Computed example of a mutant assay.
Amino acid sequence: MQVKISDYIYELNDDRIAKYPVEPRDNSKLLFYEKEKISHHHFTDIVDTLPKNTHLVLNNTKVIPARMFFKRETGAIIEIFLLNPVSPSNVISLAMEAKFESVWECVIGNKKKWKTDEILHAEVEINAHTVSIQASFANREENEVKISWNSADNFSELVEAFGKIPLPPYLNRESEETDIENYQTVYSKNKGAVAAPTAGLHFTDTVFEKIAKKGIKKSFLTLHVGAGTFLPVKTENALEHPMHNEQLVFSKIFVQTLIENHGFVVPVGTTSMRSLESLYWFGVKLIENEKSNFFIEKLFPYLERKEISTVDALKAVLSCFEKNNLTEIIGQTEIMIFPSYKFKICKGLITNFHQPSSTLLMLVAAFVGENNWKKIYSEALNNNYRFLSFGDSSLLIP
């Protein structure tokens, strides 16, 4: 099997990349694509373009200030960019509650200047008291860093006080005070992402009020977006790209609601879409083997197997909740969605405009068709849409 990344290239000049969001955030443009027809709107009109039987699914992950800066005695700055927790737990929600010590897999800036046995020091004010922070290598080869601090404040409080918001690299600017609010959805709740689910940045309380008046259902899941979402595909055969692994969380109530309202599901963002499709494949795994773990491998959906209905797969997941007396399930996914993928849950998609040569653009192509994505992106470029994280939005209904 081969997917040529050269089929997913288009010209995106720097001046088309939105460096800041529009104000107010729901005043962004909205391209509406339905059955090969395109119309232009503002995001405040989203309620007029969504069918009344829509079930919106949103990702309520919250971006943490994952960039931590330490200064060596020589004056050299070492940046520690938190990726995934290692201990005391690899479950992000538990890792954020850790006290006194935590180990994370990181991206380390200036790593060559940081000696293996060297301890880095910093201080920060938390809740009106000074906290001393230390950073040392737990495993240099694996880029695992131990962060310890001398107070009973939890890791979440430490990060909020000491870290900086990690903006996407293609913005080519440092984070600013306004990004603390701007690079966060208004419904963000569960801390743990290092990148925002940016399709949700356009929503406001006003938009949600309009959605509620129309009777549109909405539900929330959690996928903690990782830095791997920004990685361009560098192999000509995209299937050789090392797909990033992200942690997701589903509640029992969410699965019950989804079974009852699965007719016209519209995820907000590619993270919600990947989560929903991964949930279906977890159900398939449970049907094939009741003791399966919730880990969806990159190419698992493309294996030959007997067709399983959406409802049957979701009922298998619900049964897993009930048999194990669970209220939530935590899983992992590295699912890769590209043309030839058959969508199992999602009927529409609200999303921004993505980077060339990216797995997210391949996902859009899989959803709307290999030729149609080019038509959509050409139309957006010709009508001065703003691209990427702080850019404009689209509603896609194939």
Rank of each mutant, 00 (worst) to 15 (best):
F100M: 04
E101H: 00
V103W: 02
W104Q: 12
E105Q: 15
E105P: 07
E105Y: 11
V107Q: 14
V107P: 01
I108N: 07
G109Y: 15
N110L: 11
N110M: 13
N110D: 12
N110E: 14
K112I: 14
W114N: 13
K115I: 04
T116W: 08
D117V: 06
D117T: 14
E118H: 12
L120I: 10
L120W: 10
L120Y: 11
E123K: 08
E123C: 13
V124W: 07
V124M: 11
V124D: 13
E125R: 03
I126L: 08
I126H: 08
N127R: 15
N127W: 09
A128W: 04
H129F: 12
T130D: 06
V131L: 11
S132R: 10
Q134Y: 09
Q134R: 11
A135D: 04
S136W: 01
F137W: 14
A138Q: 11
A138H: 15
A138S: 13
N139P: 12
E142F: 02
E142K: 13
E144K: 06
E144L: 05
V145K: 05
V145A: 05
I147Q: 04
N150R: 09
N150P: 02
S151Y: 13
S151I: 14
A152D: 11
N154F: 04
N154Q: 09
S156W: 02
E157G: 01
E157S: 13
E157C: 03
V159I: 15
E160Y: 00
A161K: 01
A161W: 03
A161T: 07
F162P: 03
G163C: 05
G163P: 06
L167Q: 00
L167S: 01
L167N: 00
P168Y: 04
P169H: 05
Y170K: 09
Y170P: 06
L171G: 01
L171R: 06
E174V: 04
S175Y: 09
E176L: 08
E176V: 01
E177I: 02
T178Y: 05
T178K: 11
D179Y: 08
D179R: 06
I180W: 09
E181H: 09
E181F: 09
N182L: 13
N182C: 03
Q184A: 01
T185G: 05
V186K: 07
V186Q: 02
Y187I: 05
Y187R: 00
N190I: 12
N190M: 10
A193I: 05
A193M: 03
V194A: 01
A195D: 08
A195W: 13
T198S: 10
L201M: 02
L201R: 10
H202W: 10
H202Q: 12
H202T: 11
D205M: 05
D205K: 14
T206L: 11
E209Y: 02
K210I: 13
K210D: 14
I211F: 10
A212I: 10
K213S: 10
K214V: 13
K214H: 11
G215K: 09
K217P: 09
K218F: 15
F220K: 06
F220G: 00
L221S: 01
L221K: 06
L223Y: 09
L223W: 07
H224F: 08
G226L: 00
A227V: 12
A227E: 12
G228V: 07
F230W: 08
V233A: 02
E236I: 11
N237C: 12
